[in-house]
């Protein structure tokens, strides 16, 4: 027998002071800009743990050290030589190992964690388009690489001015080298990010990127050397340079910017130069398209 309850339950809704957000709602552009800033800072470990800062800062130091040594040598021997012992535009190729390590370490750090912890769908639930995410990440890593290349170039430039080399010539040279550095940065960032976006596992991404960069550079340089000097076919050796990102951009800047090449064989003639330029832009465009294609569909589970 159920007895009727003596008092019917009475509930009270307490107002505990929750408020709606009534501040300004920032749009797509601001989200993109914030993501770009976060990616750029993250590439140097800023805003991340102390352990994440060690490697990028170490690489930045290692990157600047040769420039510093070059500057000292230039200042000591300035009366004899009258120019820097290493041309600005060759710096990126000489230190390509450091650039490769930086891309290999930071491209997966930028993308893989978002994939692994399923944060990508959260980004896309905001007013942020797929292409904005790709743009922010791409621009972030490319800018980080560009800064990594700019720092030693500026050290060398200041050193050249201190050694009282002709100001006009040095300024022109360093500006051309900066344009080349920008192309280096964009190509490296693009290739690195495409590979990194394919795997949620950081370790695998790192290994894949270094394999693509280091193995292709070693193989292309060795083949170029053999075909140029043992076979004596400089044209074929020049065409081979298209097959590695590093020799590709080196050929690009040696033809477009008239910079001194560090590759074993420069692009063969004007036709070769045009092909190098086209391939460079095609690589950048392909990376952009592939990244957008990759992020059209992101699995949640």
């Amino acid at each position: 027998m159920s007895r009727p309850m003596p008092n019917p339950p009475s509930g009270v809704i307490h107002d505990i002071g929750y408020r709606k957000y009534d501040g300004p709602r920032l749009g797509r552009r601001q989200v993109t800009r914030a993501l770009f800033a976060q990616s750029l800072r993250g590439a140097y470990g800023l805003g991340r743990s102390a352990r994440a800062k060690v490697l990028p800062m170490l690489l930045l130091g290692v990157m600047c050290l040769p420039a510093f040594i070059i500057t000292v040598i230039a200042n000591v021997t300035s009366s004899i030589t009258g120019e820097l012992p290493l041309a600005y535009s060759r710096y990126a190729v000489v230190t390509q190992g450091i650039l490769t390590i930086f891309v290999a370490a930071q491209a997966p750090a930028s993308l893989s964690r978002d994939l692994r912890f399923k944060t990508v769908p959260l980004y896309f639930s905001r007013p942020l388009e797929r292409s904005d995410y790709v743009l922010a990440k791409f621009a972030g890593l490319a800018t980080a690489l560009f800064l990594l290349l700019t720092a030693p170039l500026l050290i060398m430039y200041v050193g050249a001015l201190l050694a009282e080399f002709p100001v006009g010539r040095e300024t022109g040279d360093v500006l051309l080298a900066l344009v080349g550095a920008a192309v280096f940065a964009v190509v490296f960032a693009g290739v690195g990010l495409v590979i990194a976006s394919l795997t949620p596992r950081r370790g695998l991404g790192v290994a894949a990127i270094i394999t693509v960069f280091a193995l292709s550079f070693a193989a292309v340089s060795a083949l170029q050397g053999i075909i140029r000097y043992e076979v004596g076919n400089a044209d074929l050796a020049g065409w081979l340079g298209l097959l590695s990102p590093i020799t590709l951009v080196d050929g690009f800047q040696s033809w477009v910017l008239d910079a001194s090449s560090s590759a074993v064989a420069p692009p063969p003639g004007d036709a070769g130069g045009v092909v190098y330029v086209l391939v460079t832009f095609a690589v950048i465009g392909a990376c952009w398209a592939l990244l957008n294609l990759r992020y059209r569909k992101v699995s949640v589970s």
């Binding site: 270094i210 070693a218 340089s221 060795a222 050397g225 043992e230 076979v231």
Partner: peptide, 23 residues
């Protein structure tokens, strides 16, 4: 190139021992 022992040594030294094996 054909058979050229110097090429063999250069190629294996630069690509195999210096790049492929460490990677």
């Amino acid at each position: 190139v054909g058979v050229d022992h110097q090429v063999t040594a250069d190629f294996l030294g630069a690509v195999a021992v210096a790049a492929l094996v460490p990677l």
